[in-house]
């Protein structure tokens, strides 16, 4: 492990510089530490979600008899059960499952782009980067639909006062449960979605530079690797959001 820092030319010490003790370039290392700080941010959001949720009353009845109420925290699988083009069909968590599948697949295509970059195979990098960008756009489109549905609400709505009903959600009220529920939905999935958006932009930049031959002339495709780290992190965060927001 320390061999990299020991391997210096005769007559020179490791303190003269020119060695990379962590076996990674400066840029890659900084990407790792940025992701570490980003992990703290997302942890803060998810842990706070756990705290606020635990401070609210728990629904004790059966899942089947569940009704939306501001009196207790909703069961996620009864909130997220709509799928596009299947109007009125109850399909709990199916759409989120599709989104998870899309993001995992785009992570695979990204890592294949990195592999192609190691081999200096420009055509393969272009192909896999394009698939990754498509996956990212598909995920963002799904999320746009999910948000739209969440904001507009289901047809049943929730009776608020005698004779009036509330549909959908905003930052003050929502039909699903306590106000904090919708607030956390917007903040957590929104913050993650913004990361996906930034990732798609970065991926496009990398794709553009690959097509124009910037990395070929540079002699290495390390930028693909760095942005790849970011893209996998976005997938990693989704794994946690999926578990703690949708499953638990």
């Amino acid at each position: 492990m320390a061999s990299t820092s020991v391997a210096t030319a005769p007559g020179r010490s490791a303190w003269d510089g020119g060695v990379s003790p962590m076996g990674a370039s400066y840029g890659k290392l900084m990407m790792w530490f940025f992701l570490l700080s980003d992990a703290f941010t997302f942890s803060a959001l998810l842990i706070t979600y756990g705290l606020v949720r635990s401070a609210h009353p728990v629904y004790t009845g059966t899942v089947h008899a569940f009704k939306f109420s501001a009196g207790y925290w909703p069961i996620p699988e009864r909130v997220f059960e709509a799928v596009p083009f299947l109007h009125g069909v109850e399909a709990p968590l199916v759409f989120v499952g599709i989104m998870t599948f899309i993001l995992i697949m785009s992570s695979v295509t990204m890592v294949l782009a990195v592999e192609a970059g190691h081999r200096m195979d420009r055509k393969a990098v272009e192909k896999w980067m394009l698939w990754t960008i498509l996956g990212g756009i598909a995920f963002l489109s799904c999320q746009a639909w999910e948000w739209g549905h969440f904001i507009h609400g289901s047809e049943t709505g929730r009776a608020v006062v005698e004779g009036t009903k509330f549909f959908g959600a905003n930052l003050v009220h929502n039909q699903y449960g306590p106000p904090d529920f919708a607030a956390f939905f917007f903040f957590i999935t929104g913050f993650h979605g913004f990361h996906v958006f930034s990732g798609v932009c970065l991926n496009f930049l990398i794709y553009y530079n690959t097509v124009t031959g910037v990395y070929e002339r540079r002699g290495h495709y390390e930028m693909v690797e760095k942005v790849g780290l970011y893209w996998h992190f976005v997938d990693l965060v989704w794994v946690f959001v999926f578990t703690f927001f949708y499953l638990v």
Partner: peptide, 13 residues
């Protein structure tokens, strides 16, 4: 470990 390749990095990292 696999996608982000951390498993194969130097131990310090």
């Amino acid at each position: 470990g696999e996608f982000m390749h951390l498993r194969y990095e130097v131990k310090v990292l």
